[in-house]
Each structure stands twice: as structure tokens, then as C-alpha cells.
Amino acid sequence: MVRSPLTPQQRAAGRRLGAYLRDARGERKAADVAHAASISPETLRKIETGRLSTPAFTTVAALAAVLEIRLDELARICR
């Protein structure tokens, strides 16, 4: 099965999500946040830079829990 290319809107939403998560992380080290969320630091970097525009829900939920962000707030950012 071939995945369809992302639309410009999906890529823009991914960049907004990444920027929001990066701001929420603040001064905390990416490696510490990634470890707490049980993801790799590289995955977190890809999300924060928008290179991973559509991360898995479980990944977003784990980051939201670690960063103490409500999921409905992240959903609003991605609209």
C-alpha cells in the first residue's frame, strides 16, 4: 500500500504542532522529554522541526502528558 503525499495543509499543521511542542518544552533537554515520552530524541526533533508532519496519536499523547498539554489544545493547533 502506497501512502498518499501530504497536502500543504497537513504539512503546515505539522509545522504548527512541532513549533508548539518545542515552545512547550522550553529549556528542557530534548533527550529528557523524549525519554519521558518513550520516544527517541530523533523522533522528537523530527516532530519539532515539522519533518514528521503526522506523528502517531500515541506519540502526540505521550508528549502532551510529559509537557502537561491538553490534547484538545493540540487538536486546535492542528486545525
Rank of each mutant, 00 (worst) to 15 (best):
R25E: 04
V60H: 00
D32Y: 04
R70K: 15
P41Q: 15
I69Q: 14
H35T: 13
A24N: 11
A31H: 11
D23I: 01
G26R: 09
E68L: 03
E42I: 01
G50C: 03
C78G: 14
V2A: 13
A31E: 15
Q10L: 12
L21A: 01
A34G: 10
L67C: 05
I77S: 10
E68P: 04
P5Q: 10
S40L: 00
L6Q: 12
S4M: 14
R76G: 08
A31Y: 11
E48P: 03
R76C: 06
L52E: 07
P8M: 11
R76N: 12
T54M: 02
S40P: 02
G50E: 09
A37S: 04
L44E: 05
L52A: 13
T49G: 10
F57H: 00
I69V: 06
A30F: 02
R79A: 14
D72Q: 09
V2M: 11
R45S: 15
S53R: 03
A12Q: 14
Q9I: 13
R45G: 10
D72K: 01
Y20E: 15
R28D: 15
L17M: 13
I69Y: 02
V66T: 14
L63F: 05
A13Y: 06
E73Y: 08
I77E: 11
E73P: 09
F57P: 07
Y20V: 05
S4V: 14
V33Y: 03
L74K: 00
A65Q: 15
R15L: 03
R51M: 09
I39T: 05
A61R: 02
H35C: 00
E42D: 04
I47F: 02
R25T: 06
V66Q: 12
S38K: 09
A24G: 08
R79S: 15
R11L: 12
H35F: 07
F57L: 15
L71H: 05
I77C: 09
R79T: 15
Y20N: 08
V2H: 11
R79H: 15
P41H: 04
V33R: 02
V33H: 06
F57I: 08
Q9L: 09
Y20K: 10
L67H: 04
R16L: 00
S38N: 13
E68I: 01
T43F: 00
R45L: 07
C78R: 13
R76P: 01
V33L: 06
R76Y: 09
A24H: 06
